[in-house]
C-alpha cells in the first residue's frame, strides 16, 4: 500500500495536467505581464525597456484611481445594500415553507443564469430616455421622465444598480443555505422562551450566520474589484472615466489606446491588489474568529 501510494511516476501523471494548465494559463501570462509592464510596447512593432516608468505614471493616473474608487463604491453598495437585503429576504423566505418558498427561491436566482451580455443590453434599454422602463415607471408615478441616466454624474449609480440587482439572487441563496443549516432546536427554544421574531433574528440567526456573512463579504469585495463585463458593455467606463473599473481600464489601454506595455503594468498592480485584499480580509476574519474563540474559552 505504502509503496503504491508513493510511486513518483504515478503521482506525476496525476498532477501534471493540472500543473501544466496552471503554468500555461495563469503563471506564464502573469510572468509575461510583468515583462511587458517594464516596456513601452504599443502592441506591434519594436519596443524598449523603460524600467518603472509605467508604474510611476500609474501612480498619478486619475483614471486608475477613479477605477479603484468605483470598486470601493461597488463594494460598499454590495455590503450595505445588497447583502443586508439578501440576508433579510433569506430569513423571511425561510419562514414561508412549502411550494411558495421554492417558487420565490427560483425566481430570485433567475437573473444569475442569464448572460451578462443580455443583462447589460437589457438595462441599457431600461435606462433608455425614449422608451426605457425606468423613465416610464417614473412617469407612471407622476414624474417627468426623459432622464439621461448615463450622464457623467449619474452613470456610476446606474451601473451600481445593475450590479446590485444582478448579484442579489446569488447572495440570497448563500444566506438562505446558511440559515437552513441552523439547528431548528434553537428556534424552538427561543419560541418557548417567548422571543419574538425580531429578537430571534438578532440573537440567533445573525450571530450564527457570522461565518457565512464573512465569506460573503470577502467574495463581494473581491468581485467588486474584479468587475468588468457589465461595465464594458453598459458604459465602457464612460462618460469620461466616471464608471471606470481596473480590468476594463487595462483592456482599453492595451487594445484601444495601443499602450500594451502600460496595460500590462496595470494588470500586474491589479493582480497584486486582488491578492493582498484577499489575504488581508481572510486574516482579519480569521483573527476575529480566533479572538472570539479565546473569549469563549476564557469565559468558561
Amino acid at each position: 500500500m505504502k509503496k503504491l501510494y508513493s510511486n513518483k511516476l504515478v503521482i506525476l501523471s496525476l498532477v501534471l495536467p493540472g500543473v501544466l494548465l496552471f503554468i500555461f494559463a495563469i503563471l506564464a501570462p502573469i510572468c509575461l505581464s510583468v515583462y511587458y509592464g517594464f516596456t513601452d510596447y504599443s502592441g506591434m512593432g519594436s519596443f524598449s525597456f523603460i524600467g518603472f516608468e509605467n508604474y510611476k505614471k500609474l501612480m498619478t493616473d486619475e483614471a486608475f484611481w477613479m477605477s479603484l474608487r468605483n470598486s470601493l463604491l461597488l463594494a460598499i453598495g454590495f455590503i450595505c445594500i445588497q447583502h443586508p437585503l439578501a440576508l433579510i429576504v433569506a430569513a423571511v423566505l425561510d419562514k414561508l415553507g412549502g411550494r411558495a418558498e421554492s417558487f420565490f427561491r427560483c425566481v430570485y436566482f433567475i437573473p444569475n443564469v442569464i448572460s451578462v451580455a443580455v443583462i447589460a443590453y437589457l438595462w441599457k434599454f431600461i435606462y433608455n430616455p425614449d422608451f426605457g422602463l425606468l423613465n416610464n415607471i417614473i412617469k407612471a408615478f407622476g414624474g417627468k421622465g426623459g432622464t439621461n441616466w448615463f450622464s457623467s454624474d449619474k452613470a456610476i449609480w446606474a451601473v451600481l444598480v445593475v450590479l446590485i440587482w444582478h448579484g442579489f439572487g446569488w447572495g440570497m441563496l448563500i444566506y438562505y443555505t446558511g440559515i437552513k443549516n441552523i439547528d431548528p432546536v434553537l428556534y424552538e427554544a427561543a419560541s418557548i422562551d417567548g422571543a419574538d421574531q425580531k429578537t430571534t433574528f438578532l440573537k440567533i440567526t445573525l450571530p450564527l450566520m457570522k461565518p457565512v456573512i464573512q465569506v460573503n463579504v470577502t467574495m463581494a469585495v473581491i468581485s467588486a474589484l474584479k468587475q468588468m463585463e457589465t461595465v464594458y458593455l453598459l458604459t465602457n467606463g464612460g462618460p469620461g472615466n466616471s464608471t471606470q473599473f481596473a480590468a476594463n481600464y487595462l483592456y482599453q489601454q492595451a487594445f484601444k489606446a495601443f499602450k500594451y506595455g502600460y496595460g500590462n503594468a496595470i494588470g500586474v498592480i491589479f493582480i497584486i491588489i486582488c491578492l493582498v485584499t484577499t489575504v488581508v480580509l481572510n486574516k482579519i476574519f480569521a483573527e476575529r474568529e480566533g479572538r472570539r474563540a479565546r473569549r469563549i474559552r476564557e469565559g468558561l
Binding site: P29, G267, V268
Partner: peptide, 21 residues
C-alpha cells in the same frame, strides 16, 4: 496551494498576455 492560487487571480488581468501567447 499553487493550484488553488488560481482562485485569487483576476481572470481579466490575463487577457492581454494570453492574447499574445
Amino acid at each position: 496551494t499553487l493550484l488553488l492560487l488560481g482562485m485569487m487571480i483576476p481572470i481579466h488581468a490575463t487577457l492581454l498576455p494570453n492574447y499574445k501567447i
